[in-house]
Amino acid sequence: MTSAIPTPAPAHGHSEHPKHNLTGFIIFLCSESVIFLAFFSGYAILKTSALNWLPAGVDGLEWRTPLLNTVVLLSSSGAIVVAEHFKAKEKLWLFRGFWLLTMAMGAYFLYGQAVEWSGLKFGFTSGTFGGTFYLLTGFHGLHVATGILLMGIMLIKSFIPGNYDGGEQGVQATSLFWHFVDVIWVVLFLLLYVWQA
């Protein structure tokens, strides 16, 4: 083990080395996923041990509109990949277009979520069913909103000349975050809408 395995050269000076940013962000995302894991497992435990899971007058969740929402959110992951592709080819305007499209799809998802919430017959104090439903969708929605905000910042920064001279970790990190939010939603959709038995 004494053979010299190549190690990264140290960063110079106090400036934040851009390569570390992405490493740090990935570490943060791994950590962030545990909070969702905690909520998911809490949901599963509360649901399986409940005497009466659904509040009186509620027969379950309507899944068709959320499914449409899901499709939109999942496709937005494709849009952001296309945007990154154009970024790599230095076609900045196409990048901005698809970036904006991703933002719009995210916003549509949030709108759909708001419509669904307003039509529900239960609140977040309606037992553990209501509590976990609003907690999970709300906490995820907060992440979607954060993602849109991050994309907005990246969009504005793309107009700064020389923005990408130090690398494009910001764009990569935002895209990574967006995929993360997507994957979380898939698990959430399965737990909340598909597993209704």
Binding site: S33, V34, L37, A38, G42, F124, T125, T128, G131, F139
Partner: peptide, 24 residues
């Protein structure tokens, strides 16, 4: 990194129960 988010998740639910009337 692995453990703290679980506590934070649990603490969020505790706060909701304490202050906002949920019943986790």
């Amino acid at each position: 990194l692995i453990g703290l988010p679980a506590l934070t998740g649990g603490a969020i639910m505790l706060l909701m129960d304490l202050s906002f009337g949920t019943s986790f």
